[in-house]
Every structure is written in C-alpha cells, then in structure tokens.
Design a protein around this nucleic acid. Structure first.
Lengths: 197, 197
DNA sequence: GTAATTATGTACCGATAAGTATAGATCTGT
DNA sequence: ACAGATCTATACTTATCGGTACATAATTAC
C-alpha cells in the first residue's frame, strides 16, 4: 500500500459523474464548479486525480466509449442473422441509449463532434474526438467487410459507404433524441432507413 | 428621418457575422468579445442594437433559417421529378452548404440542438430551437403529404416517418461535416440512403 | 444655432472562470 | 511514536465573463 492519506472518493465513480456533466452540457458549457459539485469533491482533489479540465474531458470521453460506446458493436456480429437485422439491432441498441431517461439525452461523442470547429475545445481534445469517430468507422468497415457479411444480401456495396451511412444515422438519431424524439420515433426511422439493406 | 447620431455599421451584416461566430462556436463557446470582434463594433453598440447575448443568438438563429435554411426546401417541390430525385436534390443542397468552405462547417441549428439539454442555453433560446425543428418537420410532412407526392412511388408510407427520416439524415450529414467529411462522402451517403425511396 | 436625441468609445461593475498556494488531516513505513 | 508522503479544505490569484455608466460625438427638428 502506498504511503500518505487515502483518496476519500472513488475515482471511477467520480469520472462517471464528470462524464455525465460533460455529456449534458458540452465542454465549454461545463464549469469546474459544475464538475466538482457533481463529483462531490473539491478542486484540488480534481486536479490531483485528473490533471485539469481538458484532461478530465479526455478521460470522460474514454469512459463514455468504454461504457456506452462499444456495447452496441456486438449486434453487428450475431452469427446467424441477416445483415439487415444486425444493423437494425445495432442501431436500436443505440436508440435505446440516446433516449434512456437515466442518462443525458443524445450521444456524448456526437455532441463533442458538434463542438469541433470552434476555438472552445482544446486541440488535443479535438484529436481525441476525431480518433474516436475514425475508430467507429474502422469498426463498421470491418464489420461490413466481414466474410459472413460478404455472403449476405449486401454484395456489391462498398463497406466504406455503408459505414458512413450508419455513422450518419447514429449521429442523426442522437441529435433527434436531443431534440426530444422518443425511442419509438427513432425506431421507426431505423426500420425505414434499413429496409433496403 | 429619426434624430440622433446614425448607426455606423450595417445591422444586417453585423448580425450575419454574429451568426457565423455562434455557428462556429456554439452558444456557451461564444463570448461577447468574440462577437464584438467579429462584428467590428463594441459592446454598447451591440447591446443597443440587439439587446443582449441571448437575444442576439435568437436573432442569429432566425437569420440562419432565413439565409441558409429555407433555400433547400424548393427542391422538394420540383413539379416534374420523382420523389427520390426531389429528396436527393434537397439533401444534396444541404450537403453542399454544410461542407461549404466559405461558411462554418455543419449546420447551426444542428449544433444548437445538440446544446439543448444542458443548463448553458437560456430557456427562451431552447424554445426557439425546438420551434425551428418543429417547423422543419411540418414542412417535410407537408411536402410528403402533397398531392403530387401521393401519386408517386411512395404510396403507403407515412409522411411523418419519412419526415423524421429526412431530418435525421440532415442532422447526421451536418455532424459528419463537422467531423471533416467531404461533400462527395456525404453525397454517397445520400445516394445510398435514398435509393429505396 | 440650439435643443433634443441617438450612437460610440472608454472605463468600469460584480460575478465567475480555470487553476493554485497553503495549512491541516490522514495515511504508511520504520 | 515519529517522519515522510499524500489527500482535503479554505482561501486565494489572475483573467475573463456578461453587462453598464458616463462622457463625447454626430445627427435631426425647430
């Protein structure tokens, strides 16, 4: 055990709380006192545990991907289902999350992406966001290039275009949720959009 | 002519400049000095002409809809075209705008919608944003309920679901643009998404 | 020309932003 | 028990936030 006084809060729980605040308010919309209040700690503790606001934000993004991002991917790899059903399951899982009343509405990464372009988000954080979106695209391309997929109905379609299509749809659903759309509305959009696959 | 010193700047041009700053940085990401710098005026002039930050924001939103929003709608009403082509033209017009290098990337209304939900945007401004999105939806529903449309290929589809589908796609394209997507990538997504219509 | 009116520029206001110095509390290793 | 290490709480710093008071410049009405 390391010497010195023990941390009186759970770093992981505090990070989740910070994540929710950033998710709800965005980067420039979140102040340090918003964070310390939500996390139940005070500023020196925050700075010693997470560095600074920008670093905490980047950690919150990682946390989000780990906790609310990667979980949907499995639906794209259900062995014995058609492509249409897989993509639908994937998107429906996302639609459930972005409308989950226990969480901030929408998608943290989508909101962060929307905030790119201004001067308000630090450069490193912008890179982190771009990297997450690039990873999502790679993941989707891989899924659509998969052996099992190739043999499915979608032969002849570019995996890259399909990946962009799905990412666009994800983003669209997330913003719709932010606008107050219900899960069932989003589901209708998903069924409509994926009918052709 | 009214008495007193004349305004030394063009109110409409100043509003457009404010619109671009809000568009680029979002509401909480934009400071009054960002605004006064871009508009080329100082604070008392801003306050006397536009009220305050929130009011200027609402005026900027109106300006955006008027200048960059309504122009796309005409493509949905081209008399002698198929539904698919109309929707494609509409979305391509939007894709051109959200990737226009002379303008901030993405869509101002989409970014504003993403900022809903936090505490950072004043209540009245949130209402203004929701109203714009509701108007867009009504407009699309009307387009899809149109006599000419009914006789087209889409018979049997709910105009409301189609409207949600198109709005989701718009939002998705806008966020993609913010992420650095090119016009041609967005066009591919559009052609892919609308192939079934 | 003079009074009334309106816009501009500077300098300011209190509040809050992100971040830190410092002192005291709490722990481990010896 | 004591030394060294680490965390916490309060209070502080500097900069900027949104917004305004006030004096001055420019304009019209008479």
């Amino acid at each position: 055990m390391k010497a010195g006084r023990h941390r009186s809060f759970d770093k992981d729980i505090a990070l989740e709380q910070a994540m929710e605040v950033f998710w709800r308010n965005g980067y420039p919309g979140t102040s340090l006192s918003d964070l310390t209040t939500a996390m139940g700690i005070n500023k020196p503790s925050l700075y010693s545990a997470f560095g600074n606001k920008e670093n905490l934000y980047k950690s919150a993004l990682e946390k989000y991907v780990e906790k609310h991002g990667v979980i949907h991917g499995k639906y794209l790899f259900s062995a014995d289902k058609l492509l249409t059903d897989r993509v639908q399951d994937y998107l429906i899982s996302i639609a459930e999350m972005v409308t989950d009343p226990k969480l901030p509405s929408g998608c943290f990464v989508c909101i962060s992406t929307s905030e790119i372009g201004g001067t308000c988000i630090p450069k490193d954080a912008v890179q982190a966001i771009l990297k997450i979106n690039a990873a999502t695209k790679s993941f989707l391309i891989e899924a659509f290039s998969n052996e099992a997929m190739k043999s499915s109905v979608n032969s002849g379609r570019s995996p890259s275009v399909m990946a962009c299509f799905v990412i666009s749809l994800q983003f669209g659903l997330a913003v719709m949720a932010r606008n107050g759309a219900s899960f069932s509305e989003l589901k209708e959009v998903i069924m409509f959009s994926t009918a052709q696959l």
